[in-house]
Amino acid sequence: MKVLLLAAGRGTRISRYLAGNPKCTVDIGGQKLIQYTIELFHKKGITDIAMVLGYRAEVIQETLKDYEGIRYFYNPFFDVTNSIASAWFAKDFLSQYDDTLIMNADVYLEETLLDRILECHKSPVMFADGTRKEEADYKYKYENGLLVKYGKELTGSDITGEYIGIGRFSKDFMPEFMEKLDGMIRTQQHSVWWENILYEMVGKRPVYVEEMDGLFWAEVDYVEDYERILRFRGYKADFSLNVEKI
């Protein structure tokens, strides 16, 4: 198993609260979010980890300076491209075919949730939370474990859960993934998410969705997301994001 963490974006929706630092470097109570994530993967025996950096890359590398073996790639166009371009800049890592997780680096996962993800052997499979519907950011509709619809604009009965920012892919699927990735970059589709590689397959081949409802996760897009993480870990933050144990 290998893991690609995407951390190139600026995070404009919350950046004013973070003193301009990358979202994955927020303090979650005694350590940074990205440190927690790396240590969690190491605990599961996963050490083949790469990150794509962009905005304030030096802050992330300084945060992880004591963690050996992480491969870094850089998206110099992070301010004018989306995450599909970041994935393309890590193509040397992804082309060394193995079972692969691709994950947004600003996502917090409780350990049991990661265990569920690692136990899932469907491919390609995206992970969703069926307990979050109306408040969901990026919404999925899935039926019988297959993705049917997707998008921020979904409403009502078209929402069965919120995408949590992680996909898992088998070694056998990765050549197809890379072919689609190269094709989309060649046709200048660099303003879309890496997940669009999978979305273009919907209706043509099975794209699975695995439910993670009941287990805790949060993506640091808004201050409310950050506060949810702190509460889960037994901390609170004041308006300057100083963290205190509850």
Rank of each mutant, 00 (worst) to 15 (best):
M1D: 07
L4R: 05
A8E: 06
A8L: 00
T12N: 12
S15A: 13
K23A: 15
V26S: 02
V26Y: 02
V26H: 02
Q31K: 15
I34W: 01
I38S: 05
K43L: 12
K44N: 14
K44M: 12
G45W: 08
D48M: 04
V52G: 01
Y55A: 04
I60W: 01
Q61E: 15
Q61T: 15
T63Y: 01
D66F: 03
Y67F: 14
R71A: 13
Y72D: 12
Y74L: 12
T81N: 03
S86D: 14
K91Y: 07
S95L: 10
Y97H: 14
T100P: 10
M103C: 14
N104T: 13
Y108P: 01
T112F: 05
L114E: 02
R116P: 00
I117P: 04
C120Y: 07
C120R: 10
H121K: 14
S123L: 11
P124I: 02
K133I: 13
D137W: 06
D137T: 08
K141Y: 15
N144L: 09
K149I: 04
K149C: 04
E153W: 12
G156L: 11
G156W: 10
I159G: 08
T160I: 05
G161A: 09
E162D: 11
Y163E: 06
I164K: 02
I164H: 04
F169H: 01
F169E: 00
M174V: 02
P175R: 09
F177C: 04
F177N: 02
D182A: 11
D182M: 04
G183L: 04
I185K: 00
S191N: 12
V192S: 10
W194L: 12
E195W: 10
E195Y: 09
E195S: 11
Y199T: 09
M201P: 00
G203T: 06
K204R: 13
R205G: 05
Y208K: 03
Y208P: 08
E211M: 06
G214C: 08
L215N: 05
L215G: 00
F216M: 03
F216V: 05
F216E: 09
W217G: 01
E219I: 04
D225C: 07
E227S: 00
F232V: 00
G234D: 11
K236T: 12
A237W: 02
F239T: 09
N242W: 11
V243Y: 06
E244C: 03
K245G: 10
K245I: 10
I246Q: 14
